[in-house]
Design a protein around this nucleic acid. Structure first.
Lengths: 122, 122
DNA sequence: CTCTATGCAAAAACTTTGCAGGGAT
DNA sequence: ATCCCTGCAAAGTTTTTGCATAGAG
């Protein structure tokens, strides 16, 4: 879906910064932190974080924190998927699959698994 | 298991601060952040974090980050259990259960689920 | 006596806020 | 003319580090 439509649906005013930001996340294939994209951003970090906050409030974007004190963001998708963060190489993988946990009545927004990935695991 | 034994097994020198710290986590029934216990601590925050680092390196304690920029710590148990963090009330629940994800070959250290808990979910 | 642990204060890393200027309607 | 978005700089929050002192063996 186009960025313009996404913002319009949420009644968020379209600006250059918001369009650029949302497009980055829309076309990204993995969660990104501010640091990951700061060199490609044409906006100040204040603008980045302020708009991220708006996007999160409007459920356009979800976030989670990794072991390295950073926050990662990605487009909120319908499909349940978990993130695996490797404590050794710090890589983040998206894991498709189902959680078999007794969480009826809970609204699950994010699943983050940490550990050591297959590559790093000897 | 006694704190003294735990430290001895890992060849960590027993000190007053380490004993106090490990006992707090040993008898806690949920993960705790520095802020949660700072008023009860008789040590400086530098000592807290330095010893936590040692405990983590020796696999006595595991940690994860929540949405509120804090790190939570708990005794590393053998039993797989996940944490559910409510974005509304910020409460942390320990969830017993199994993950049915294709993660063979991965070493899973922590599972953190965020969302809205049953109580807060209307 | 030597070696490590601790407290204090300062620094570091990431994120948020205050404020004044700029753009869009 | 008004409203809100933005950039810049400063402040805030949590965690880490440097250094001198204290403590254990």
């Amino acid at each position: 879906m186009k960025v313009e439509k996404l913002l319009e649906n949420k009644s968020i005013k379209l600006t250059k910064a918001r369009k650029a930001l949302l497009e980055i996340f829309l076309y990204a294939n993995k969660p990104l932190s501010y640091e990951d994209i700061k060199d490609d951003l044409s906006m100040d970090k204040a603008t980045f974080y302020r708009n991220i906050t708006i996007f999160e409030e409007e459920n356009l974007i979800s976030s989670f924190e990794s072991n390295n004190k950073k926050r990662y963001f990605e487009i909120l998708e319908k499909s349940n998927h978990a993130h695996f963060i490797c404590n050794t190489c710090n890589d983040i993988e998206c894991i498709k699959g189902q959680l078999a946990l007794g969480l009826d009545g809970y609204d699950i927004q994010n699943v983050t698994i940490t550990g050591v990935c297959k590559q790093c695991h000897i």
